[in-house]
Amino acid sequence: MSNRKMITAALPYANGPVHIGHLAGVYIPADVYARFQRRLGKDVAFICGSDEHGIPITIRAKKEGVTPQDIVDKYHEIIKKSFADLGISFDEYSRTTSKNHYETSQDFFKVLYEKGKFTEEMSEQYFDEQAGEFLADRYIVGTCPNCGNENAYGDQCERCGSTLSPSELINPKSMLSGNVPILKETKNWYLPLNEYENFLNEWIIEGHKDDWKPNVYGQVKSWLNDGLKPRAMTRDLNWGVPVPLPGAEGKVLYVWFDAPIGYISFTKEWAEKNGKNWKDYWQSDASDLVHFIGKDNIV
């Protein structure tokens, strides 16, 4: 065990306040652990911040008639104050709309792009001609092919629980205008996760089996057994970290690409304020990395 502890807590999503389940499941246990390590004299960095991109925020903004920035500004302050009032001892609590986070996540993307780690793929996606934008799966509603629910989303039917794709919906409509969307070709950048199956299998299943909770280990093992598939790391949206490539206007980084990088970008902010080197915490064998997360973060 090392003398340095890099501790993170899952980034709360800034479209609502934190509740007792969040606190019991993630933040209080993480705080107890961080305080204990400090009492032992360890060099602790306890890092967190608000996750402020993604479709649910844009949906809430449209419902309330405000901008996505208005939504995240409101809930970031509410969440930050709740943690302060509860005495959660974060060393840094930041947000993914910060300039530093944009630069850090874009740097990650550019390095992967320049190393040829992405594949570029053309696909047909639903497009709302009246709204003039591509539709995320959650902005498409229609009839579920499995249970007949007429208000199923393009990614899931909340009545029967089926996972769906927009093309499976019967009579799809845009939530933005109510019109029938058209299919339009678009380009996005994919991370071929299938190329990393051997590495992930060895690192997770072989190398760190005893470090994971049984449910986490079992869930990840099942995904690896089924075979990983390429996953798009960019989206056709107007809310998020812009894709830092020429010709990529109107595209942003996938929220599950940019948000986990927040752990690093927030550590950088903390380190710069305190005269420390963030790499000592993230890239040193003399540092233990401990994540406190919720079950939806496992993927």
Rank of each mutant, 00 (worst) to 15 (best):
K5V: 14
P12I: 00
Y13G: 09
A14Q: 05
I20M: 10
G25C: 09
A30C: 06
F36S: 09
F46K: 10
C48S: 15
C48D: 08
C48I: 07
H53S: 08
G54F: 03
I57T: 10
K62F: 09
H76F: 15
L86K: 11
F90L: 10
Y93Q: 05
T97Y: 12
D107W: 14
Y113C: 01
E114R: 12
F118H: 02
S123N: 06
Q130V: 13
Q130L: 12
Q130K: 14
Y139A: 13
G148R: 07
E150A: 10
Q156M: 12
L164R: 04
S167P: 00
S167F: 11
E168K: 08
E168M: 11
P172E: 09
K173T: 15
L183F: 00
E197N: 11
E197Q: 10
W203P: 00
H208T: 14
H208P: 03
D210G: 00
P214V: 06
K221R: 04
G227R: 05
L228P: 04
K229C: 00
M233D: 07
P246Y: 13
E249Y: 11
L253K: 00
V255F: 01
D258G: 03
A259M: 04
A259I: 09
G262F: 05
Y263H: 09
T267M: 15
N277I: 13
W282R: 03
